[in-house]
């Protein structure tokens, strides 16, 4: 198994996801509804209240990074469902019998999900613009923000694949997927600054990878304050490495 083989397999997995997306985009559109409601309804209403210290940023602008991340992470967290489905059919057995490493399979699938998630964010992005969110007019910053979205989504897809290989059935997976997302969202700085949280929740927020992702995307897209970007990126990359490794180690067990 050479590095070359692994890359080839990863690209094949990304290509698969792109081809599926080309045939059927319904999911991408329906999944865009919820984040658009967060921005359009929740964001607009809360903007009137002025109860949350956002550092002078309009509230809707403040939550845009969090909502973008939530929508991409939604795609990733439920990516495991695809894996559960592929387990129920014979696809996973077949992939694991192919001359490819499980690392390449897991990372390839995670990256593929990351790509899908970025496509999801690209749909919400113009809606946010229409709602009057003011982004930093620097294309490099925006690109970097999308890179963060991609890296974080890939990481959550790996978690999802790990959960799929433990849970193995659709029902159990759905339960855990639902139980994971909203707490993750609420225990982060997506909707309010960490300082406003009760101390116990603050500890959780500091351990939550979403906090670093929101911080990085907010800095790049909205506030222009990138002073903590290095810390944020380090946290995200450590997160990715850990989850990719754990998910890969466990992956063969999925077919047992």
């Amino acid at each position: 198994m050479t590095v070359n083989d692994s890359f080839r397999e990863m690209f094949a997995m990304i290509e698969l996801e792109m081809r599926r997306l080309r045939h059927d985009r319904t999911e991408i559109y329906t999944r865009a509804i919820q984040p658009i409601l967060w921005l359009g309804v929740f964001g607009s209403v809360m903007s009137q209240v002025n109860a949350i210290p956002t550092g002078g940023i309009p509230y809707i602008d403040f939550i845009t990074p969090g909502v973008l991340l939530q929508s991409t992470i939604f795609v990733s967290v439920f990516y495991g469902l695809t894996i559960v489905w592929e387990r129920e059919t014979g696809i996973l057995k077949r992939l694991l019998v192919a001359p490819a490493s499980r690392y390449a399979t897991v990372i390839g699938r995670s990256i593929a999900s990351g790509v899908r998630a970025v496509v999801q964010a690209l749909i919400i992005f113009p809606v946010a613009l229409l709602l009057g969110v003011r982004f930093i007019p620097n294309p490099f910053y925006i690109l970097a923000a999308f890179l963060v979205l991609f890296l974080v989504s890939g990481g959550f897809a790996a978690i999802s694949i790990f959960v799929a290989s433990v849970m193995k059935t659709r029902e159990r997976f759905m339960g855990l997927g639902q139980a994971l997302i909203m707490p993750l969202f609420f225990a982060s700085n997506a909707l309010y600054p960490i300082k406003m949280m009760p101390p116990a929740l603050q500890y959780i927020a500091v351990m939550n990878p979403l906090t670093y992702a929101v911080d990085a995307v907010r800095g790049l897209m909205i506030s222009g304050d990138v002073s903590r970007l290095a810390i944020d990126m380090t946290a995200i990359i450590i997160f990715d490495i850990v989850v990719f490794t754990v998910a890969s180690l466990n992956f063969r067990k999925i077919i047992e």
């Binding site: 080839r8 290509e15 698969l16 599926r20 059919t89």
Partner: peptide, 21 residues
């Protein structure tokens, strides 16, 4: 069990598998 992806074409399935293999 079925081991091809149903939401892409037969040609695409072969193409993806040829890359994996």
């Amino acid at each position: 069990e079925t081991s091809v992806w149903a939401d892409i074409s037969g040609f695409e399935n072969l193409l993806i598998y040829s890359k994996i293999y």
